[in-house]
């Protein structure tokens, strides 16, 4: 089996993406959907229900009374927090340790959540609102690493040599040595999981949104900037470090200035402090 087939074969062994999340996203994005519909969908998935209740009762949300049912959890959390809670509860299961990037599962997960939170902070600045599709794309942007990790591990010396001796980015080095990079593979996984095109593109092009020709969707640029911000702050550190191209035009594309970006980074620290308990709870759970 050649390397490309081996990578694709490994991808098909990933667990299926929880159908509940797709249904919840559909309902959240539909202004005509009712709370009852949302409750009915969520409570069919036991592991997401358990995680939502656990998160809802954590200090992160600071509720005074114990919440013991999905209906009350949704009432307390609100629509945007439901997206965060369902995504976090439903996707943490995929974040296992990735040997090739020398990243622990918890760090990858922290990087995923940090990127999603920073993407939302940037979205509030750029679009004056949060965006559930953006949150989804951002939390899953490195999903390709989960599959590619074992292949990166086998060829790590070769990849690192290109980074150190030829000043190639880790992404280019992956591409050269493995024939595929983790972002492109992430896009393939997102397609396999039946995500819509905007989310697939944002994942596949999160390092190089400039290569997404003929499209004007700002989402890949926001994910790019959020990812770079988290790498800069050391949120989720791996062997790839900061060996990626930070695109010069990213802020201009989104109408942001350097002080805007710095303010967003500063704002992320508090959001991460608040979310840490949530991250720990979800990741520690067996589901």
């Amino acid at each position: 089996m050649n390397l490309d087939s081996a990578i694709r074969n490994s991808m098909t062994r990933l667990p299926a993406f929880p159908a509940t999340i797709h249904k919840v996203m559909g309902l959240i994005n539909n202004p005509d959907s009712s709370l009852t519909e949302l409750v009915d969908v969520i409570r069919l998935d036991q592991s997401i229900t358990a995680n939502i209740l656990r998160m809802c009762n954590s200090a992160y949300f600071g509720l005074r009374h114990k919440v013991d049912n999905v209906h009350d959890a949704i009432m307390y959390l609100g629509r945007q927090n439901i997206v965060r809670a369902v995504m976090a509860a439903g996707t943490s299961r995929f974040f296992k340790s990735t040997p090739g990037y020398e990243a622990e599962a918890r760090e990858l997960w922290e990087h995923a959540v940090g990127t999603a939170l920073l993407a939302q902070i940037l979205a509030r600045k750029v679009f004056r609102r949060e965006d559930s599709s953006l949150f989804t794309a951002a939390i899953l942007h490195d999903i390709g690493k989960i599959v590619l990790g074992e292949f990166v591990k086998d060829k790590y010396a070769e990849i690192k040599k290109l980074v150190v001796e030829q000043s190639r980015s880790f992404l280019e080095a992956e591409e050269k040595v493995l024939g595929m990079n983790h972002a492109t593979l992430g896009g393939v996984i997102a397609a396999h999981w039946k995500f819509p095109e905007d989310i697939r593109d944002a994942i596949a092009f999160h390092h190089r949104p400039d290569r997404l020709q003929g499209k004007t969707d700002p989402m890949p640029w926001v994910v790019h900037l959020a990812d770079q911000g988290c790498l800069m702050l050391g949120i989720g550190r791996g062997a790839d470090g900061l060996a990626y191209d930070g695109l010069d035009g990213a802020m201009g594309k989104l109408g942001l200035t350097q002080p805007d970006f710095e303010e967003a980074l500063a704002g992320l620290v508090k959001e991460m402090d608040n979310a840490r308990e949530m991250i720990g709870i979800v990741h520690a759970s067996p589901n």
Binding site: S169, M232, L242, A243, Y244, G246, L247, A250, M251
Partner: peptide, 14 residues
Amino acid sequence: GSILMGQGISRSIS
């Protein structure tokens, strides 16, 4: 003070 590659966004901060 690590710096992202390219003409990146991190240079002035790093």
